[in-house]
Computed example of a mutant assay.
Amino acid sequence: MAVSPPSPTPVSARPARHGAFHSLTVAAVDRLTDDSVALTLSVPRELRAEYLHAPGQHLTLRRRGPEGTEVRRTYSICSPAPGAAGPALLRVGVRLVEGGEFSTFAHKEIAAGDVLDVMVPAGRFVLDPAAAPAAAHYAAIVGGSGITPVLSIAASLLSARTDARFCLVRSDRTAASTMFLEEVADLKDRYPDRFQLVTVLSREEQEAGLPSGRLDEERLTTLLPALLPVAEVTGWFLCGPYGLVQGAERALGALGVGRTRVHEEIFHVEDTAPSTPVRSATAAHGRVTARLDGRSGTWSVEDGESLLDAVLRNRADAPYACKGGVCGTCRAFLVAGEVRMDRNFALEAEETEAGFVLACQSHAVTEEVEIDFDR
């Protein structure tokens, strides 16, 4: 179907497009642990406005393969949020995943001077320091590489708001496997009265501090009230493996923390049953109307096809990264019709209740469905 082009706007005023990639040069590759590295990316002056980001957002990196294939992976930005001019540098943490195509590439092949395809920032696991109330007190519970976005959130908040406090409860396997150890220690040195750090190692005893072991629901329910006034915390950020995040969510619920004060981001989910129960069968045939970057189109949806795949057949610039219901890059507003989502580990309850869906996990239940990526 033919679509109308968007109205032209001056380049300086044009906002970043959904899913837009640009080529960025790798400025540095820093070894964090035996199985993790930090990639620092240089942002040309003319692109800095497009890479403005809120604390906690992520980047999608793309590697092109033979015959037009590509691999996309999402990594959170660990550097603090930039000023209004945009960032000259962006830094992300990459942990090696067994069998992971992109993480193996990052660890073994990427070097300073290489050029990578990098999507503009996305994600809603964020904190706006300017919007925080007076004397705000935030807390985070993270596991492993879940420290990455929270490092940006904590550093940005404490730098921008001299009246704010932040408590970080982090869980790692061993001290040697702990990502951004120096960066977190630097926060403690700079803000000793406003930054509280609690470290738990699951497979190694510490000389001082808490005993080793997993941070599960039972342990957190006992630990958190001993660390800080749970009821007075402005907002909670949970990030890491699915099991840790779910256990922390249940512990906070048992301690009386309202769901609206809890924000979650899951880095990895093992193959599980769909998180959203099947409510009805999908439509045998259907059409999807999608709005993206000011342009709309209507296309057929093939049997068993997700809405995202139907849009991608016609709009290669549709935003996506993991296609597993985890990163939330393909979030869209359901304007009309009914869909079934197979999995949802990215959208919070308030978002789904407001009408947002993950296009990669959504299948048409009604013959006509309309979604809007621009909302």
Rank of each mutant, 00 (worst) to 15 (best):
R161Y: 13
A155S: 15
P5W: 14
V335S: 06
A27W: 00
V198N: 05
L210V: 00
A85V: 04
F237Q: 03
D172E: 06
F125H: 02
V301E: 01
A136K: 09
L224Y: 01
F195Y: 02
V126M: 13
E264W: 04
R95A: 14
R73P: 09
A49H: 15
R173L: 03
C78P: 12
T104Y: 01
G56F: 04
S171H: 05
A254I: 10
G19N: 07
V29F: 03
I266C: 08
R214A: 09
R375M: 13
A20K: 04
P10W: 15
T174I: 11
A310T: 02
V26Y: 13
A316W: 11
E70F: 15
L244P: 13
E264G: 06
A155E: 09
R295D: 08
L201A: 05
S212L: 11
D216W: 07
L181M: 01
A16K: 10
A131G: 03
F356P: 11
T25W: 01
R48M: 11
E305F: 05
L127D: 07
P15Q: 09
L187S: 06
A164C: 11
A364L: 10
T272R: 14
T199D: 15
P277S: 01
I141G: 03
R161L: 07
S275Y: 03
V311W: 07
A176M: 07
A130W: 03
R331A: 15
V94L: 06
R313P: 10
V339C: 12
E204S: 02
D342I: 10
T25P: 05
A318E: 10
L255S: 01
L47H: 14
L220N: 08
A27V: 06
S159I: 05
E207H: 09
G65T: 08
C167P: 06
S177R: 10
Q57E: 01
V288S: 09
T69Y: 13
S103N: 02
H58P: 10
M341W: 07
E265H: 02
T104L: 08
E101S: 13
A38Q: 13
G56A: 11
L158H: 09
L358I: 00
V11D: 13
L96K: 12
S76G: 02
P319A: 05
G355E: 00
D317T: 01
L255Y: 07
A27S: 09
V169Y: 05
E109C: 10
A28C: 05
G86L: 02
Y242M: 13
A316Q: 09
L39R: 06
A316T: 08
H107L: 15
G324Q: 01
P129R: 03
A84P: 05
T74F: 07
T366M: 06
H285V: 15
Y191S: 09
F21E: 00
A354W: 13
G19S: 12
R315Y: 02
L307A: 11
V3I: 11
L41V: 12
V369M: 09
V233H: 00
A139V: 04
P6S: 14
E67I: 08
R14H: 14
R250V: 14
L244C: 02
P6C: 11
T352K: 06
E218M: 10
G240K: 01
G113A: 00
A154Q: 11
A332V: 14
E67Y: 15
V71H: 12
T60M: 05
F373V: 13
T366N: 04
